[in-house]
Amino acid sequence: MNNMIVYEIADLGALDITELLTESKDEGFRNIHRLVNEYNEGMNTFQHEDEALFECRVGHRVIGICGLNRDPYSGGSIGRIRRLYVLKEFRRHGAGRRLVEAVIHKASSHYTKLVLKTDNPKAGEFYKNLGFKGIADDELVTHELEL
């Protein structure tokens, strides 16, 4: 799958992420609907200098998405991975890795640490394979990566 390309998104509203919305909902995940709702309501538009939203494409098809925000629970030196989702048929082909690597690259210019929260065991293993360490007994963070 060498034809996957990751781009930083300037305007989520300009993207066709219908396929991501439909499949994520069918799988029981609410994160992509939250992404769209929070973006449309202006609650989270990834517009700060130290924030970004990335898409992964194959041709014109958006196959994955992942965001970087300032961690709202820390003093500003920590970034948070938000709303990672990759279409099922592209999982285990490097799309998620490329998206998270783009987030890590962007975050390393602004933050000392990157954190996230997931209750999905497969996602937890995915992040550990990328060098994140698991955090126990924290309601807000399940994984972190020192930058």
Rank of each mutant, 00 (worst) to 15 (best):
L15E: 11
D16S: 07
D16T: 01
I17H: 12
I17K: 12
T18R: 10
T18Y: 12
E19I: 10
E19C: 13
L20N: 01
L20A: 05
L20C: 03
L20D: 05
L21W: 04
L21Q: 10
T22I: 08
T22H: 04
T22R: 13
T22Y: 07
E23K: 12
E23R: 15
E23Y: 10
E23H: 04
S24W: 05
S24H: 01
S24D: 03
S24K: 00
K25N: 02
K25C: 00
K25T: 08
D26W: 02
D26V: 07
E27T: 08
G28K: 04
G28N: 06
G28V: 11
G28S: 07
R30T: 06
R30S: 00
R30N: 03
R30D: 04
N31V: 13
I32R: 00
H33N: 07
R34A: 09
L35A: 00
L35I: 05
V36S: 00
V36E: 14
E38I: 01
E38F: 09
E38C: 08
Y39A: 03
Y39F: 01
N40E: 13
N40P: 01
E41W: 07
G42K: 01
G42T: 12
G42W: 07
M43W: 12
M43K: 15
M43V: 02
N44A: 06
N44Y: 12
T45F: 04
F46V: 08
Q47E: 12
Q47M: 06
Q47G: 00
H48M: 09
H48W: 04
D50C: 01
D50E: 05
D50P: 13
D50Y: 09
D50W: 07
A52S: 13
A52D: 08
L53V: 07
L53W: 03
F54R: 03
F54K: 02
F54N: 03
E55S: 08
C56R: 06
R57V: 10
V58D: 11
V58G: 01
V58L: 00
V58E: 09
G59S: 13
G59N: 11
G59I: 11
H60K: 15
H60M: 12
H60P: 05
R61M: 11
R61Y: 01
R61D: 14
V62Q: 06
V62T: 13
V62A: 15
G64Y: 14
G64I: 14
G64L: 12
G64D: 14
I65T: 01
I65F: 06
C66G: 11
C66Y: 11
G67Y: 11
G67V: 10
G67F: 10
L68I: 00
L68K: 11
L68T: 02
L68R: 07
L68P: 04
L68H: 01
N69I: 11
R70F: 06
R70Y: 03
D71M: 08
P72S: 14
P72D: 13
P72M: 12
P72T: 03
Y73R: 15
Y73W: 15
S74P: 02
G75Y: 05
G75C: 07
G75T: 04
G75Q: 10
G76W: 13
G76H: 15
S77H: 12
S77P: 00
S77L: 13
I78F: 02
I78Q: 03
G79M: 11
G79P: 01
R80A: 12
R80F: 08
I81C: 10
I81L: 14
I81V: 15
